[in-house]
Simulated scan of single mutants.
Amino acid sequence: MLIKFAVVGLSGVGVNMVVYMYLIALSANYMVAAGCSFGIAVTSNFVWNVLWTFKGRAEDKSISKKYASFFVISIMNLGVNLLVLQFLVEYVQAGKTLAQLVSIALVSGLNFLLNYQITFGERRCKQEKGAPVSYEANSYTNLQ
């Protein structure tokens, strides 16, 4: 699953960088370009993660709930990405393209862990509606 996530992530990096460099070539501010390229890449990544990487996981969640979770996690990662990007460009004097690649690489591990656990996380105790509750699953059992 991690390898699939990495493949999807690399394709997302490609999408991100193509959009980012295109916007930079149009004289867009590098921070605006990073935000726009993020929006396109995150949607592409979500689609591929649902269809391939995490196929069949978290079936109890609607697609819109998964996307909302994926997007919120991605926004948090974008915040970290932008901080690193700005630091590398303005203080380290790194090139904008290299700085963006480094920034993406740094947030990728956190992105996988959060999406694996939250967006595509499985319930630990799957129980059908109407089924009897086991002793271990019933937290309201009164032991006397």
Rank of each mutant, 00 (worst) to 15 (best):
A34S: 10
T141S: 12
S139V: 13
M31P: 01
V8K: 05
M1Q: 12
V72D: 05
M17F: 12
V7H: 02
K66A: 07
M21P: 01
S64A: 14
R123P: 04
S108C: 07
C125Q: 15
S27K: 15
V18H: 07
L114Y: 10
Y22M: 15
S108T: 15
N45A: 09
F38M: 05
S27I: 08
E90V: 07
S134I: 09
I3R: 07
G79Q: 04
V15T: 10
S69F: 06
E90W: 05
M76C: 14
Q86R: 12
V32T: 13
S74N: 07
V84H: 03
G39Q: 09
F70A: 01
A25Y: 11
V19T: 09
Q86G: 13
L2Q: 03
S62Q: 08
G12E: 01
Y20M: 08
Y22D: 11
F5C: 04
S69G: 10
Q93H: 15
Q86T: 11
S44M: 11
V102T: 12
T141V: 15
S69N: 13
G14Y: 00
V80C: 01
F87R: 00
F112P: 00
S69A: 14
A34E: 03
L82K: 07
G39E: 09
V89I: 13
L110K: 09
S108A: 15
M17G: 06
I24F: 05
S103N: 06
G130Y: 00
I73E: 01
L85Y: 02
G121T: 04
K129R: 15
A131Y: 03
L2D: 00
F38N: 03
Y135S: 10
V8G: 02
V15H: 05
A137P: 00
E90N: 10
K4T: 03
G109H: 03
V92E: 08
A94S: 09
L106A: 15
A58M: 09
F54K: 03
L85V: 03
V42M: 07
